[in-house]
Design a protein around this nucleic acid. Structure first.
Length: 136
DNA sequence: GCCAACGTTGGC
DNA sequence: GCCAACGTTGGC
């Protein structure tokens, strides 16, 4: 199983919105690195849900419920894809960007190194560490 | 194929 | 609201 992190601005689509909707199609991604990660996602993979701009923290975990399929919102043919995600659980304690920055093991995360990438890969070591920090 | 110009993201 | 970082576009 692989671990991932996706970012969303909470006033556009928050983790609570996902909880309310029960599932959502993660579409509209227009970045090749992000697209390639989305193509690698397998059903059952777990995903940290990060709120960018407002909050700047990991607030919950989602799971991949449908693997990559052509993004219905794409108007060109550059191979953009969507995945479907479902909420798994909200974290007991949210993990802020500052929390990630000060933790040595997490300092190599794309969240720190390439903050603009909206879909990121998380190593199992990083995943476990963040869960522990979140009291899970 | 290079690179300047431009647009977007996201932290501050 | 500002601006640095990054990705994309398009002229040459």
């Amino acid at each position: 199983m692989n671990y991932w992190l996706i970012k969303s601005e909470p006033y556009v689509y928050s983790y609570d919105d996902l909880t309310h909707d029960k599932k959502t199609s993660w579409d509209g991604v227009r970045n090749y690195a992000a697209r390639n990660y989305m193509r690698e996602m397998k059903k059952g993979d777990q995903v940290f849900f990060y709120h960018s701009n407002e909050g700047k923290q990991i607030v919950g975990i989602a799971t991949i419920s449908k693997e990559a399929y052509p993004d219905p919102t794409a108007v060109d043919n550059k191979g953009w894809v969507s995945v479907e995600i479902k909420p798994l659980k909200k974290l007991k304690k949210f993990i802020t960007l500052v929390d990630v920055r000060v933790e040595k093991i997490l300092s190599e995360m794309e969240l720190v190194k390439n903050s603009r990438l909206s879909v990121q890969k998380v190593s199992s070591k990083e995943w476990i560490k963040i869960l522990k920090m979140a009291g899970e």
